[in-house]
Design a protein around this nucleic acid. Structure first.
Length: 990
RNA sequence: GGGUGCUUAGCUCAGCUGGGAGAGCACAUGCCUUACAAGCAUGGGGUCGCAAGUUCGAGCCUUGCAGUGCCCACCA
């Protein structure tokens, strides 16, 4: 009866005091480390490397929780489970932080120069870069920390250079002048997928371009127009009075009787870079204009009218201004027609020297002035308000500017093909499968990838220019001299690579590629990539084509996708809304286990999930529930009394080999071995049997990546079956009972709880470790060997033990290196399970009656059971103590004759054909009881009609499977028997 | 314009290859029954978006429709 000193658990689970200590122990035990081990199968996950600028947000929390679940589970299954951690240099995000810091100090990139800037960045990385990994530790992540990688580590940088050089050598990387997305705020090009398109209110300006008159007559008018337009430009730049001059020009045109082609644009400032106007060749309206020219207003340049299929006659005015240097389509048109490409903006998106009078103006200011000037000149035909999609920088949300620029590109088509095949052949599978369609759709329509960035923080492009001869040398190391002309002065390309270029190599660069390392041999390809569906394009697809290209294999066999975390209202969590749940805050308040639980429970793969306070609270409640169940079990395993009662551990150690740590081994050895020869009761066999089924189901769900479902099942079992039923069923034996019965109950309690701790461990690692360890200690000196076997790399004190004669009660040094529970056929106990279920139904039924009749729980009642079934009679007598305790029944009789039992009992219940008579005497309202029975009769009639109708249907009886028909017949018979009894009881009420 | 999800209890969501609808929260009633009031017991609550079809049988399969979300796309 005295508690184990020091092993008494707190009444309320206090995660914060437990988690740090436990994590420390795992580290000390070296359990996270995985090494190539020929005796085991590998299981590998590489972490999606968080940005060094990052702070753990709830998105990371889900992503890493799922990974940790998988890796802990596989580790327990005996795999050499490697979870490779690391961080991403995040070139643009990090650079922005440094720039910001410099600004606060009153200096800038330009001022301190590249070298100093990089020093700053590295220092910053040293200081903050590991923060997020520390936060992952608080979440419980079991990464192999000694393998931590960073995308700018020497080895990984080597991989980057290697890939660049190889692709360049094959012509799959090229340098060229294209329209790229330019972010004026970040001051760099970005790739297509880094642009977000949003609907914005804007205008569609219809602008009249004066057509230069054909033939000789044109001369005078042209001159006039030129003067007028030129005057407009000059004036516009000079003063508000500009409008007048421009107007003069237009007037000249009107007076000259010239006509116009009207174009429409949402970006009028780009007109200064127009080098043509295009119409559809089939458009009759413009047939006569093709081949002629227009005078570009405000610029005073004469540009051709061309015909191109690209133009949609239905859209706008059917005539398009062509600005090859500022629009991707126009660029293509320009190529087809050999048009000049005139850039009119600089890298800050201000108008450049080619913009004449508008030079130096910001693009929006220029837009305003140009519109005003056109209007004043009478050349603005119409201003149409219009919502259109505007590309914005996904990082800073500045409106991007499509600008012609010389950049480096990866030629995608040749890389995409094999990557598509890899998924089509199922070498990499998306979970759920529907994401493969998204992948295909993107890969099949892929554009070349702009990989150069005008940033300093990142992998510098390994291209070297010879100013003497113009040669470009691409090499792993900077060449001593120009390979062509031998000049010594080579200049490296100033640009760096897209941060995703290095992330794309992550699954193999972290393993040491391009070297042929043991890790590459053993752990690669990886097994699962866990990530959100929002980065399929950015990362997943790029890893696949990179890996297929460079390693000849897929980077991972499965891609397990999860959704986004939303708030209670279903909104995306964002900084600006301030609706984000801070995972660290949740960990602080409710524990990492509760957070992990809330993020995992009941979620289907690929679906978004909502995280609310209520959900977190119920997760915390579950942890507490489990905690208290463990308290109960530990209290009852007791101190000194225990050893005698259980005939010690020697018996356990020598005993069952069944399934290494199976509760059966514990329980049966108690049942058959010990003094007093205690037997397992039907309650024990029932819970063991259900536990066993849980093991099977949970494992199957995990195998199918249905983590949410696996956890749901474990949760249901622990709460509804183990806590609410089994513990209650065990109490009578623990409190009363002889030593043998007590021993059996204890063994089962401990065995099942231990198994639950193991099954739950991947999801809730801390609390399960605490419980498992406490159980191990309670098993006595031979049990837990905390630390003693900690040296076993990636463990498996337990699993190795199971290979060589596992004692039933072996506890591993840590639950995380214990062997994952196995389904064990010997635990199936159908007869006992049926009996127990029957008793439970009886208990429920009596409780129900009592509750409906408002019978105080303290008031005991006597009950008489009548049944024809031998099994039921056995169950009732075996379950007597359960029924008495859990249904508040005092005296108890099982009779064969219902007439006598029924005589003075107003309340009659029918459960599975057995009848229960309870004399509640004065409590019974005969009227109400009769009504209840009538309702019951109605219900049974409906059921009988349904089942009867179904069985009468020949289609059903001839085509449905036999088992289904059999079930239906049994149901019908049951209902009919029940109806007879209910009808009889109703009749008796008079 | 394409593609792709979703629509199940008041709310948030599960529901595996088609065989009588589930959980959490909320709600109602009664319980401090010595593991847990962050709890226990009992209960109410659903024409599974609508309509056709396939099937002996449909929440699940097919088609259409209606709402709603997301992704992609070069509508100037």
């Amino acid at each position: 009866m005295p508690m184990e000193q020091g092993k008494q658990l707190e009444k309320v689970y206090a995660p914060s005091s437990v988690e740090k200590r436990i994590y420390r122990r795992w580290l000390d035990g070296n359990y996270f480390h995985a090494a190539a081990d020929k005796s085991k199968k590998p299981f590998t996950i590489v972490i999606p490397p968080p940005n060094i600028t990052g702070r753990l947000h709830v998105g990371h929390a889900v992503d890493n929780t799922l990974q940790d679940v998988l890796v802990r589970w596989k580790r327990m299954q005996g795999y050499a489970a490697l979870w490779m951690p690391g961080t991403d240099h995040a070139s643009i995000a990090t650079e922005a932080k440094i720039v910001e810091a410099l600004k606060l100090e009153g200096t800038s990139k330009a001022e301190i120069g590249r070298e100093k800037f990089l020093e700053r960045a590295w220092a910053w990385r040293e200081l903050y870069g590991g923060k997020i990994l520390e936060q992952l530790k608080r979440l419980g992540c079991s990464c192999d920390w000694e393998r931590e990688r960073f995308t700018m580590d020497a080895g990984l940088s080597e991989a980057v250079a290697e890939v660049f050089v190889r692709l360049y050598g094959e012509g799959l990387i090229y340098k060229g002048e294209r329209i790229i997305n330019w972010c004026p705020r970040c001051g760099t090009s970005i790739s297509d997928i880094e642009v977000e398109y949003n609907e914005r209110d804007g205008c569609f300006w219809h602008i009249k371009y004066p057509v230069v008159p054909a033939g000789g007559a044109a001369g005078g008018a042209l001159a006039g127009a030129t003067t007028g337009a030129a005057g407009g430009v000059a004036a516009a730049g000079a003063a508000p009075g500009a409008a007048g001059s421009a107007g003069t020009g237009a007037t000249t045109w009107a007076a000259g009787g010239g006509d116009f082609i009207t174009v429409a644009t949402t970006r009028p400032e780009t007109m200064l870079g127009d080098t043509a106007v295009a119409v559809n060749p089939a458009d009759p309206r413009y047939a006569g204009y093709i081949g002629r020219t227009v005078m570009l207003p405000l610029a005073g340049r004469e540009i051709p009218i061309i015909a191109d299929e690209y133009v949609d006659s239905e859209f706008g005015t059917g005539a398009v201004k062509i600005t090859p240097a500022h629009d991707p389509n126009d660029f293509e048109v320009g190529l087809r027609h050999g048009l000049p490409r005139l850039r009119v903006m600089d890298d800050r998106a201000a108008m450049n020297e080619n913009a004449g009078a508008y030079s130096g103006l910001d693009r929006y200011e220029a837009r305003r002035r140009i519109v005003a000037d056109l209007d004043a000149a009478g050349l603005l035909a119409k201003t149409e308000p219009r919502a259109h999609s505007v590309g914005e920088c996904s990082r800073c949300h500045e409106t991007i500017e499509p600008i012609m620029s010389t950049q480096w590109f990866v030629k995608m088509k040749p890389l995409a093909g094999p990557a598509i095949d890899a998924v089509r052949q199922g070498r990499t599978r998306f979970v759920p499968d529907r994401f493969s369609k998204i992948y295909f759709n993107w890969m099949e329509n892929i554009q070349d990838w702009c990989i150069s960035r005008q940033l300093w923080w990142g992998h510098r492009i390994p291209a070297y220019y010879c100013d003497a001869c113009g040669e470009i040398a691409v090499a792993r190391q900077k060449p001593e001299k120009c390979p062509k002309c031998g000049a010594a002065a080579l200049r490296q390309d100033e640009d760096t690579l897209d941060t995703w270029f290095s992330s794309a190599l992550w699954p193999f660069s972290t393993m040491g590629w391009p070297k042929r390392t043991p890790e590459m041999e053993y752990f690669y390809p990886t097994d699962v990539l866990v990530t959100g569906y929002d980065i399929i394009f950015f990362w997943v697809a790029r890893m696949i084509f990179s890996a297929v290209k460079h390693t000849g294999d897929v980077p991972f066999r499965h891609v397990y996708m999860h959704g986004l975390v939303r708030d209670a209202q279903g909104r995306k969590m964002s900084k600006s809304l301030g609706n984000g749940v801070d995972p660290l805050d949740v960990i602080e308040r409710c524990g990492a286990d509760a957070l992990r639980f809330a993020l995992t429970i009941g979620n289907a793969p690929g679906n978004d999930l909502r995280l609310s306070d209520e959900k977190i609270e119920s997760a915390r409640n579950f942890a507490n529930k489990l905690w208290n169940a463990a308290r109960f079990v530990l209290m009852n395993l007791g101190g000194g009394e225990q050893a005698g009662g259980e005939s010690g551990d020697g018996e356990g150690d020598g005993g069952g080999m069944a399934g290494g740590g199976s509760p059966l081994a514990d329980a049966q050895s108690a049942g058959e071995g010990g003094d007093g020869a205690p037997q397992l009761t039907m309650a024990d066999r029932w819970i063991l049997s259900d536990y066993n089924r849980l093991v099977k189901e949970a494992t199957e769900h995990l195998d199918r990546f249905e983590l949410g479902m696996a956890l749901q099942k474990i949760y249901d079992f622990i709460w509804d079956e183990f806590c609410d039923w089994y513990i209650e069923l065990a109490k009578p034996r623990l409190l009363g009972g002889d030593a043998g019965q007590r021993g059996a109950a204890r063994r089962v309690l401990r065995g099942v709880l231990k198994g639950c701790a193991q099954l739950l461990h991947p999801f809730m690692p801390f609390i399960t470790e605490e419980i498992y360890t406490a159980l191990g200690e309670s098993a006595g000196p031979g049990g837990a060997t905390d630390g003693a076997r900690g040296g076993a790399v990636n463990g498996a004190a337990d699993s190795s033990a199971s290979g060589g004669g596992a004692p039933g009660e072996v506890f591993a040094a840590s639950v995380m290196v214990s062997a994952w529970p196995q389904y064990d056929e010997a635990l199936e106990a159908k007869a006992d399970t049926d009996k127990m279920r029957f008793v439970m139904s009886v208990i429920k039924s009596i409780r129900n009656r009592r509750s409906e009749m408002n019978v105080h729980p303290g008031k005991k009642a006597s009950a008489v059971f009548v049944t024809d079934s031998r099994e039921q009679a056995d169950a009732l007598s075996e379950g007597r103590a359960f029924i008495e305790r859990l249904a508040s029944v005092s005296s108890f009789a099982i009779e064969g004759e219902r007439a006598r039992a029924a005589s003075d009992s107003a309340v009659a219940l029918v459960v599975d054909g057995a009848e229960i008579f309870i004399p509640f005497g004065e409590l019974v309202d005969v009227q109400k009881e009769a009504e209840r029975l009538k309702k019951e009769l109605d219900r049974l009639d409906r059921e009988i009609a349904r089942a009867g109708g179904r069985l009468a249907n020949e289609g059903f009886t001839s085509k449905a499977p036999a088992s289904v028909i059999e079930d239906e017949r049994a149901k019908l018979a049951g209902y009919e028997a029940m109806r007879a009894k209910v009808a009889d009881n109703l009749g008796r009420l008079g």
